[in-house]
Design a protein around this nucleic acid. Structure first.
Length: 600
DNA sequence: TCTAACACTTT
DNA sequence: GAAAGTGTTAG
């Protein structure tokens, strides 16, 4: 019952500009781009929808890409039909294939087993259509991503939205220098399971919750010429994840305790390639090592530690050298007095470090399996086993972030990034990890940019999440519906073909960009509200599947009700109430944790 | 599980 | 100095 409609909203992220907010829809059946320019976020005249053609959109894009105002940012979709269709199919009609490549030793449906927390394809997933075959995408800081991935990456999701760490940054090559492209991201379910973290490991605990409305995050530079994208790292760092189903900020909505796979889409946007047309040229890349489980609080302390050690904003939680000694001593069975973190600050012991037994010296071991230097030319295979209990991976968690600036890595001063330190020479080229982290895809094996030295001066693009400084419900709570062209079915490899039950016949998420062209025309202005979530299907889906399974159709959430903004904290002007939490970095917790350390 | 307050950090 | 991004903590 897929009605072939997708809901789009295009929002201007230009905070400093007139905050023009474009709520728009792409009608791929007619190649009309309907835009409702809400001249200002304060404008509630949402009803005045001005229909513009694709050229208008291009002009908007063009203005943004030229460095002037008008760059687009929060461009995301909501697939109403998908989920409606799934509902019609009883929520179990996604045609999820049997686990063809799953581990035969893996339990097929045993929540108590210890499934890998990572779908681990043999290679980066990619899908390109005509004219885009030459596009190559390299994941920046792939080594860091892999470190997280080996432990089981977790991403915090909050109501207000939380950035991903590591940040999603890529180097794109193979673009026509003069052709314009739109770069966007989405985050799709990696499977249809809900996970739990118990006994120091992730395991499937049941069926996934209904998927959140799928949203696309368009890089604010879009569209821009190939030379523009290729000139420097493309950062989606500002992308935020939220668990707020009614999120009005354009953040990507996820479910906690579910596994997701970020994807990058490169869409040709030149005049002869109307965005969304049947001939739309696009390219989709997904890096398996960037898959993660969304959580509201970290479950695996190894992940916590990795975050602390690598995210500069968490520097305050990093342990001091003394504390490192302390930890090492503990590892050796020696006892040390417990020092409250508050007293030890700012050099505090990293709490609950799963790497207690790992001397930092390990990090510099170039030949070691966990070398932080990605340019060493050693083979980069996927993590040996994601399903492995964490304690088995202790020996591998030797990544220790050293002090560095600009963790954001792609900033002009990013040369000081941890991973760049080994390259004092500082080539002007940034270091990019090739997409072929794993065995390269045939025909898509990226060249060897991984050996490229760093960029010393290349600035990094920063994607913009949302336009209006103070987004208003009326600005965000509506959208048009539009179908997507089947030609834009990126990440076909990500999601094996599945039965035509739902809209994701080829690529659930990709089909969000695609797949609908042949379906009914969108109902412009069709209300989005009250569309229930679809249920997720995929009976018998094996959590151990090494490739991503089709994500469930995305539901369209009701329009977010106007949510009152919480008043400012009452601390202002008055005594601060007793501290309830946070900041209380007490070493006790860490030291009391009986975490075995496997030094072997 | 999830949230909000918190101290600390980078930008 | 302000704003925003961190993990921690209590509830």
């Amino acid at each position: 019952m897929y009605d072939g409609t997708f809901l789009f909203r295009l929002q201007d992220c230009e905070r400093s500009s007139t905050s023009t907010l474009y709520v728009s829809t792409l009608d791929f059946s007619t190649l009309k781009f309907s835009i409702s320019p809400v001249l200002h976020p304060s404008s509630s005249d949402i009803g005045n929808r001005e229909r513009l053609n694709l050229g208008s959109l291009r002009r908007i894009f063009r203005s943004g890409s030229d460095g002037t105002s008008g760059g687009c940012a929060g461009f995301f979709w909501e697939n109403r039909a998908a989920y409606l269709g799934n509902m019609a199919n009883g929520g179990d009609a996604f045609g999820l294939p049997d686990r063809p490549d799953s581990d035969p030793d893996s339990p097929k449906d045993n929540k108590n087993e210890n499934p890998p927390i990572r779908s681990r394809p043999a290679s980066p997933q990619s899908t390109c259509n005509q004219g885009m075959e030459g596009v190559k995408v390299f994941l920046h800081e792939a080594e860091l991503w892999s470190k997280f991935d080996e432990v089981g990456t977790e991403m915090i999701i909050t109501k207000a939205g939380r950035r991903m760490f590591p940040g999603y940054k890529v180097k794109v090559t193979g673009l026509n220098p003069k052709t314009k492209y739109i770069l966007l991201m989405d985050v799709v379910p990696a499977d249809d399971h809900r996970y739990k973290f118990a006994d120091n490991k992730w395991s499937v605990t049941g069926k996934a919750e209904p998927a959140m409305p799928g949203r696309l995050y368009v890089h604010p530079d879009s569209p821009a010429t190939g030379v523009h994208w290729s000139r420097q790292l493309v950062s989606f760092q500002k992308l935020k994840l939220t668990n707020n189903h009614l999120d009005p900020f354009g953040h990507i909505i996820l479910n906690s305790m579910h596994k997701y796979q970020p994807r990058l889409h490169v869409v040709k946007a030149d005049e002869n390639n109307g965005f969304g047309s049947k001939n739309t040229a696009f390219c989709t890349r997904s890096f398996p090592e960037t898959a993660f489980i969304a959580v509201t609080s970290y479950q695996n302390h190894k992940i916590t530690q990795l975050k602390i050690e690598n995210n500069p904003f968490a520097k305050g939680f990093r342990g001091s050298d003394d504390m490192e000694l302390h930890r090492m001593a503990k590892l050796q069975g020696k006892d040390y007095p417990v020092v409250p973190r508050t007293a030890a600050r700012p050099r505090v012991c990293s709490s609950g470090s799963p790497y207690q037994g790992e001397p930092r010296a390990l990090q510099g071991s170039p030949g070691g399996p966990r070398s932080p230097y990605p340019c060493e030319g050693r083979p980069r295979g996927p993590p040996a086993h994601y399903a492995a209990p964490q304690h088995l991976q202790h020996g591998q968690q030797a990544y220790h972030g050293t002090k560095r600036k600009a963790e954001d890595g792609c900033a002009p001063d990013d040369r000081q990034h941890l991973y760049k330190k080994p390259y004092p020479g500082g080539s002007p080229e940034p270091y990019y990890h090739p997409a072929s982290y794993a065995p390269p895809l045939s025909g898509h094996a990226p060249p060897g940019p991984s050996d490229a030295p760093y960029s010393a001066d290349v600035g990094q693009r920063q994607a913009c999440m949302f336009a209006s400084p103070e987004p208003r419900l009326e600005d965000l709570g509506w959208a048009y519906a539009c179908p997507l062209p089947p030609s834009m079915t990126p990440a076909l490899h990500d999601y094996p073909p599945y039965s035509p039950h739902g809209p994701y016949s080829s690529s659930p998420q990709g089909s969000r960009l695609s797949g609908a062209a042949h379906h009914g025309s969108p109902s412009l202005g069709e209300p989005l509200a009250h569309a229930p979530y679809q249920t997720q299907g995929s009976a018998g889906q094996d959590p151990h599947s090494r490739r991503l399974t089709p994500p469930p159709p995305q539901g369209v959430l009701p329009l977010p009700p106007l949510r009152p903004v919480p008043p400012a904290l009452p601390h202002a002007g008055g005594p601060r109430p007793p501290r309830q939490g946070g900041g209380a970095r007490v070493e006790l917790r860490l030291l009391s944790r009986p975490k075995p350390v496997d030094l072997g």
